[in-house]
Amino acid sequence: MRLDLDAKSFGPRQVLGRLALSVARGERLAILGPSGIGKSTLLRILAGLDTDYRGRLEGADHLAVVFQEPVLLPWRDAVANITIPTGCGAATARDWLAQVGLAGHETKFPRQLSLGQQRRLALARAFAAGPDILLMDEPFASLDADTAARMLALTDALLTRSGAGLVLVTHDPAEALALKARALHLGGDPARLQKD
């Protein structure tokens, strides 16, 4: 995947300036920067969710996104929360649930799961989609330190096992380090990428 961005604006305000970013399967990148700098906007462009920008996005990579919130179907159980969005079979969904430590929770609904369990379900859903590149938008925010550390270790292991690439948006350099991701800093006005 390659993005050559000329500019991204919201109304008269230019949020992102000229930048180039590329990531391939197996490669890990972390976009670091303070809140409000445009990290999530950049990730939405990479995901194809925001097409209102000047520039070009290329690549036929299969993507999966893990958002800040788990974004689960509240009226469906854990298995269905994986099979419906990904199209995989129930056996595959159960396997991914086991891999993220949710064996025995297959028939539970999101409201019956803790926030940490909901985040693991969202992670299972993303990997069940078989992505070439996983896009993550501050997925460890609002987790306590122990739960976040376990989620980081789990994500690292699943990335290694699957061979998927990663673009992580975060304000925490320790998360980039834990996921062995090359760090790029987003800063300035309008924001541009710089190597850390």
Rank of each mutant, 00 (worst) to 15 (best):
V79A: 01
L42N: 06
L73G: 03
A47I: 10
R54Y: 08
A80R: 15
R44N: 15
G36Y: 09
I31F: 06
G59C: 10
A20L: 06
F67C: 11
A64E: 00
L46T: 07
Y53K: 05
S35P: 05
R76D: 01
A20Y: 00
I84D: 00
V79R: 01
S35Y: 10
G48K: 10
L57T: 08
G55E: 06
P34D: 12
V23W: 02
G26C: 13
A80T: 05
R56P: 11
I84H: 07
I45E: 02
V66F: 09
R44C: 04
I84P: 00
I45S: 03
H62R: 15
I37M: 06
L29Q: 03
S35K: 13
G33V: 11
G38V: 01
V66D: 04
D50N: 14
L43N: 02
V71E: 04
V66M: 15
T51P: 01
D77T: 00
G55P: 13
I45F: 06
L73N: 02
G36A: 11
D50I: 12
S35E: 09
R25E: 12
P34N: 10
L32A: 12
N81G: 07
R44I: 09
L32T: 11
A47E: 07
R54P: 02
V79S: 00
D50S: 08
Y53Q: 13
E27Y: 07
R28D: 10
V66Q: 04
I82H: 01
P34E: 12
F67Y: 13
A78D: 05
V71T: 12
A80H: 08
S40V: 04
T41D: 01
I37N: 02
V65Q: 02
I45D: 01
